[in-house]
Design a binder for these strands. Structure first.
Length: 231
DNA sequence: TGCCAGGCCGGGT
DNA sequence: ACCCGGCATGGC
């Protein structure tokens, strides 16, 4: 299975090239993006991030003092913008009130000496999951892409694609699918980083528009796609 | 035109 | 443990 997963990864990487994820200049921008991108196309998130940058609000302390209604206006392009505003505010509050507004400080306690991270990691993950609007994908994205923690990020594309490849059940929980990857892949930050980025690249290409699925780098995926008349 | 994006919450069974 | 409606913009 490990060979198969790495083979798929190699095909994707060769086809799409390195994705250079996460597309953010700072860990804080990354975290903000992770919240804003929930169930919305990234191009919409970019608009909101630009709005925040223009207002100098990609700063925990500045955002902390920002008026809610004005923030909602800036986040409108991200669809469910009122909920997104609250989610961002609550994540930001967590950082400001617990880590002096220094996002990187969150990870100080989970820093590992070699490839082993200590028991503080699940503690931090649980704390993040308790924050309003922080679900497993958002939290794991933050841990991997902002914190450099080797944890595999699962999303809707992962579920669809690996089901179509015949490797996982159609109905599978986030936790189980994550375990599937982490059980069969080496715990390597760079691999987890790039693999998820590649899955999204493939998902963006084939998961919405079946007729365009012509030169899918994972051939089995394409054939399965057509046979099942998915979507 | 209509369809649907890189989820998550809360209330139901 | 699942299931499902609600959230509510903008691009193709």
């Amino acid at each position: 299975m490990q060979t198969q997963l790495l083979n798929i990864y190699d095909k994707l990487l060769k086809h799409f090239g390195p994705r250079h994820w996460w597309p953010a200049e700072t860990p804080y921008e990354m975290m903000v993006g992770a919240v804003l991108t929930q169930a919305v196309a990234w191009r919409n998130v970019e608009k909101a991030l630009t709005n925040l940058k223009n207002q100098g609000l990609l700063d925990p302390d500045r955002l902390y003092r920002m008026d809610t209604e004005k923030l909602e206006e800036l986040l409108k392009p991200t669809r469910y913008y009122k909920m997104k505003t609250r989610k961002l505010q609550e994540l930001n509050r967590f950082i400001v009130e617990n880590y002096q507004g220094i996002p990187e400080a969150m990870f100080n306690t989970v820093v590992f000496n070699t490839s082993v991270f200590n028991e503080e990691l699940p503690v931090l993950r649980a704390k993040l999951l308790k924050i309003y609007g922080m679900g497993p994908e958002t939290v794991d994205s933050i841990l991997l892409y902002a914190g450099g923690v080797p944890i595999f990020v699962v999303d809707a594309y992962t579920k669809k694609i690996f089901y179509r490849l015949g490797l996982t059940p159609e109905q599978i929980t986030y936790t189980k699918l994550q375990k599937f990857f982490m059980d069969h892949l080496p715990g390597n930050i760079r691999l987890y980083n790039e693999y998820h980025a590649q899955i999204v690249a493939l998902g963006n290409k084939i998961c919405q528009n079946v007729p365009k699925c012509i030169q899918c780098p994972v051939s089995d995926c394409c054939s399965y796609f057509k046979e099942t008349n998915f979507n």
